[in-house]
Structures are given as C-alpha cells and as structure tokens.
Design a binder for these strands. Structure first.
Length: 623
DNA sequence: AATGTTGACGCCCTCTGCTGGCCAACA
DNA sequence: ATGTTGGCCAGCAGAGGGCGTCAACATT
C-alpha cells in the first residue's frame, strides 16, 4: 500500500465563520480547549493527569465539564488534590498571549523553559502538622513540592524548539520528535508489524495498525448502539450520528455536514469539480465510487444480482431491492386481472399473467363487433350505445362518451389555452421534485472570486421553467426525449442536440444545448408558427363565407359535406384513416408543401389510432 | 535526556443506499 | 402520438476504516 502524503497545509475549502475549526474530529465547539495562532485547537493530547488517562469518552466529556465547572468556581482552590484539575483549567483557558508571550529568560532555567519571568508561588500547606512548601506554576496553576518537577513542567509552556530539521524548516522541542519527523523525510519506518509487511514510523502507529487489522481490538464503545472502534476520535464522530450534530455548513446552500470531508465533497456540486476521470471514455465524476461503479459498465462481465422471485437480473443491488419492492411486495388487496378477473398477490405475477392475454380482447361489445382490451374501454364504448356522454371538457363544456375522446379534444382544441388535461395518474400528480432541477438550483459560483453568477442562475431558472416545452406549439412534455419525438413527428424537425454523453463530458454544456436548440428552432420556424385553432377557423370561414356566412360546426365536418375543401396537414395517412376521416378527401391531391406548412396543423389533430374503427365513431358524434 | 505511550488532528478511502434522469418496451 | 413502467446509470450523502503526523505526558 502506497504511503500517502499529508496535504493538510493546503485548504481548498472555505468554511463559514461560525465554524472555528476545520477538523472533523472536534467534539464540541463550545469546549474551551486552547487555541493556536491559526485559531485551531492545538494538536496532540490535551493536558491530562496520568490518573485520568483513560480511553473513556465520558471521562473526556466529564473533564471538559470539570473545566467549565472550575471556571465558575473561585480561584482559591489550589489544593494539592485539585492541582491537576486546576492545571487543566488553566490550560484550557490559556490564550495565545498568555501562553506564548514570554518575557526575559530566567537565568536558572534551561533553554527550553519559558522566557517570561514566571513567579514560583510558594504556598504553605498544613499537612499532618508539617509545613510543606508548595511550588506553583504561574502559567497554569500546576503545583508541586519538587522544584525539578516544576522546572520540567515549565518546558511544556515553552515555544522554544531547538531541534531543527535538516530537510525542512520545521523544528521540535525534543530529539525524538525530530527523529520521527526526519524519518518521514527519509521513509524510515523502524516499527515492523509482525503479522504483515507493514511498517511504521512510531510504535503508536504500529499498535493502532495491529488493532485495526489483526487483533480487531476496539476499546471505544458507543453505549447507545454498541458500535466499537479503535480510536476515540472515531467514536466521537460516530456519536454525532446519534446527536445529529452537523457543525460544518455549506456557504452556498443549506447543506450541513457532520465532518469536513463530507462538506468538501459536497462543495463539488457548486464548483463543478470532477476529480475522477474514466480512463476509457474520459467521463468525469465527483466521487471515486461513482467512477468505480461506472467502470463496471465498461467490463465485459458485469455484476449481476438475480431476483429470487423471478428470472430478472439486476446490475446493482439497490436496483434489485427496488425491483423486489415494486414487483414482489404483497398487496394488501389482491390485484385483479382486468381481462379475466383472476386475482394475483403481487404486481409481477399479475403482469406475467397479463401476457397470457396478449392479443386477446376479452371485453366484447354485445351490440356490435367492437371488442376492447380493458373493461374501462368497453365501458366507454358502451356509452355510445347508451347515448351518454359523461366526460365534460372543463374549457368549453363539450361532452364526450369516452375518456380518450376528451383527452384528444383537449389536446387538439385547447392546447394553447390554459386548460390542463386532468389526470388521476399518481405518476404525474405526485411526481417528486426532480433531482436535476434541484441541481440546477444550486448556486454556481466562481470559487476564486466568490461571486455568484446571477445571470447563469436566472438562465438556469428560466431553462427549468421552459424545460421540455415545444417552442413551436408551446406544448409541454415530461422529458427531453418526448419533446424530441414530438418535434420530429409533429413539426418534422429533427434535432439531435441533446446528446447526454456530450453533455456529461462537458463537450456541450447546458447553455450550448438550449441556446443552440432555441436559436435553430426559432430560425426555422420564424414564419411558421401559426395558431392551429385560428387557422382552422380562418380556413373554414373562407370556405363557408359564400354559403352561410357561418363556420361549419363539428357535426357538419364529420358528416362529410362534399363542398368542404379539405385541410391538408400530413404527408401520409393510412388508408384506413383516409376512409375514416371522410372530410379529408382531397388530401392526396395536395402537393404544395408550403401551403401545408402555412397551415401547419398538427397531425395529431386528425390522425386516429391505427385500429379500423373510424375516428368519428369513437368520437361519439355518429348518432 | 532519551524513550515510550497516548490522544488528537487531518486526510483520504470504501461501502452503502437513496434519488432521479434516460431509454426502450409496452399500453 | 403520447403516457407509463421497469431497468440502467450517474449523482450524491451517510457512515465508517485506515493511516500519517504531531503534541503532551509518562517512564526509563
């Protein structure tokens, strides 16, 4: 395993002001541990008495509580019993100035001692009748009766680092620190693991490694859930999953992270950074695992997750889970086949059963030769025999016998109006907010300048508003594919601009796609966008001005008045449809394409389904 | 003074799981 | 012609493992 190089000096992440530290291990921002000149907590173990050196996280918290409690107490409790706590208290509250701003070096002290004159306080303590002289550190209230111990202790307050590294600018208080550091330059790792080939710079690293990899000893356990880990800092990080603490806020959105890594990773959605690149197709990813999953798509042998309930095989575990939940979850009510009324426990068996009806039309009309695939279709058909029209257009009040007829009417006649086709489909009405939209709403910023691109945001918002709307007829679609298909089929305009791969590889960006598409469509259709409804009426008015000064009503059209000039709209219509749509008689004679385009009437206005039943039959106006 | 131990900080990695867009088949 | 659905895939966040490094303190 390659040795990683620490890059902690380079911080690419900007943090909000409220977050004092960029450390992902900080337990509590309110804890008043000492801070360094960088405004961070000092590295290393917080001052702690030997007795209190346990791995217990609670004790760690208790220690901080003790510190806080001591803050509230008066300062006269410098008894020997409280010496350590007092030391901790002072350490906890010492500031940059109080710790590092030393004055002259007392002559008696070694080079490593603090340079400011530290008064050694002497306190008389009555102990079993004997008078003992107590020596007290003026920096942290550490007390001892031994002078050499106090002197040794004072070294901890020193900033002097006499041991300089020959390979870099760093210096250290002790030679062992220097030795360890130099070993990092030289790659010397004297501590070899006896279970594997790993070796480490310090014994501590080796011990930790052995715990992680070999003994699996996990001394730190979460009392709430039993999670155990090798390192205390990991337990603290874990505890945040219980408390929900997320101290690291994204400056660009509402996201908050429990640690710096996740925030840094999250920030890529704002910066657009994609550090992980596929070596095969050059597609880039924001996360390493996305790349890893992507690489599987290039493999000849892809992973497979077979469903245990059916022959389906999924490429991902999560997809299998989704498949099982959707297809094989038992329904509270049995699902009935609408062709034979047989009941089925889940969606999958119903679907498989449905294939047995392939080509069958179970629901036959008793009055005519009509047969339907569903009972609903037959029911709608029967309305025509009954003479009932239960489906009303909310826009014009027109009544229809069948749902499909109403839908077709709304599509044809009220497309440009505010009328919406009312659907009960939960897939439409309860559609979840789409991820891409949320992504577009992210505020893109220039990280170097920190300036938000308002114009881009506005464009993106507008783009979202206009998503999948046909620029010719303004009809809205649920996907780019449907819109593409619509513009190709209805408006005879093919544009394959939306190439997802190009888009994702940044060869074409969102702006390119939409700007180009919009421009091209605008140019092509500048003079061709004619309101269909108006043109129909206009044309009809012309045709009938001489006769009745009235536009024909729908029944007249469908009855097929010989005098009505036909409205050419489409290049090809099935012969069945030509027969069905009686009023389109002269269609084949129409050759003037420009005329067709001038009228530009949507094919769907007239083309019926491919079945042999005439459209006007279905429309229910035939009597 | 030298050495050892322990804990903290920081970074990166992987695994996991959910979400939503896209596509093709089907209705 | 269009809507719906299931599978595939990328995006992205939650959680945890592992290790390099440094500092404080204890022991020899």
């Amino acid at each position: 395993m390659a040795t990683r190089t620490s890059t902690r000096s380079t911080k690419a992440v900007k943090f909000v002001d409220s977050v004092e530290s960029d450390d992902d291990e900080v337990l509590d921002k309110s804890s008043s541990l000492p801070i360094t000149t960088e405004g961070k907590k000092p590295r290393g173990r917080p001052p702690k008495s030997r007795r209190s050196q346990t791995n217990d996280d609670d004790e760690w918290d208790a220690r901080n509580e003790q510190i806080d409690d001591d803050d509230d107490d008066n300062d006269d409790g410098n008894t020997s019993d409280h010496g350590r706590d007092v030391t901790k208290k002072i350490l906890a509250n010492r500031t940059i100035d109080s710790v590092y701003d030393f004055g002259e070096t007392p002559r008696k002290w070694s080079k490593a001692t603090p340079q400011r004159n530290s008064t050694i306080s002497k306190t008389s303590v009555s102990d079993s009748g004997k008078s003992m002289e107590k020596l007290m550190c003026s920096y942290c209230n550490y007390t001892t009766t031994k002078k050499y111990l106090l002197q040794r202790h004072l070294k901890s307050h020193s900033t002097e680092r006499p041991h300089k590294c020959a390979y870099c600018d760093r210096s250290f208080k002790t030679t062992i620190q220097l030795t360890n550091h130099v070993n990092t330059h030289l790659g010397v790792k004297p501590f070899q693991c006896k279970f594997c080939s790993f070796s480490f710079t310090t014994s501590g690293e080796l011990i930790r490694h052995v715990r992680y990899k070999h003994t699996l000893e996990k001394p730190h356990r979460c009392e709430e859930c039993g999670y155990a880990t090798v390192e205390l800092s990991k337990l603290r990080r874990h505890i945040r999953t219980h408390t929900g603490e997320k101290p690291y806020a994204c400056p660009h959105c509402s996201y908050c992270s429990p640690d710096t890594f996740k925030l840094k990773r999250h920030l890529r959605v704002h910066t657009g950074e994609r550090p992980y690149q596929c070596t095969i197709c050059n597609f880039r990813f924001t996360q390493s695992n996305s790349l890893k999953a992507h690489m599987l798509t290039h493999q000849a042998e892809k992973p497979s997750f077979p469903c245990s309930y059916c022959p389906s095989v999924m490429a991902r575990k999560s997809d299998l889970r989704y498949h099982v939940s959707k297809q094989h979850s038992r329904q509270s009510e049995p699902l009935a086949c609408n062709k034979c009324d047989e009941d089925f426990p889940d969606k999958y068996t119903l679907r498989m059963h449905g294939k047995t009806h392939k080509g069958q039309t179970i629901h036959s009309c008793t009055h005519c030769e009509f047969s339907a695939n569903t009972s609903q279709q037959l029911d709608d058909h029967m309305n025509k025999h009954r003479g009932t029209r239960p489906f009303q257009c909310s826009e014009c009040g027109l009544m229809f016998a069948a749902r499909a007829d109403l839908r077709a009417h709304v599509t044809r006649t009220h497309r440009n109006a505010s009328t919406t086709i009312i659907t009960n489909s939960p897939a439409i009405n309860n559609r979840r907010p789409q991820r891409r939209v949320a992504s577009l709403q992210h505020r893109y910023i220039d990280v170097s300048s920190g300036i938000e691109d308002d114009e881009q945001q506005q464009h993106q918002q507008q783009q979202h508003d206009d998503d999948y709307r046909c620029s010719i007829c303004q009809r809205q679609f649920t996907s780019a594919r449907l819109l593409d298909r619509h513009t190709y089929v209805v408006h005879e305009q093919k544009h394959d601009l939306y190439d997802e791969r190009d888009y994702q590889t940044n060869e074409i960006n969102d702006d390119d796609i939409h700007d180009y598409a919009d421009d091209e469509l605008e140019e092509k259709n500048e003079n061709k966008i004619i309101n269909k409804h108006e043109n129909i009426i206009e044309r009809m008015d012309e045709d009938y001005d001489d006769e009745e000064d009235l536009a024909p009503n729908v029944e007249d059209i469908i009855e097929g008045d010989e005098d009505i000039e036909q409205i050419p709209t489409i290049k090809s219509v099935s012969s069945a449809n030509k027969k069905q749509i009686g009023y389109i008689r002269k269609f084949d004679e129409q050759e003037d394409l420009s005329d067709k385009r001038k009228l530009n009437i949507d094919r769907s206005s007239f083309k019926s389904n491919d079945d042999e039943k005439p459209d006007f039959d279905v429309f229910g106006f035939d009597g």
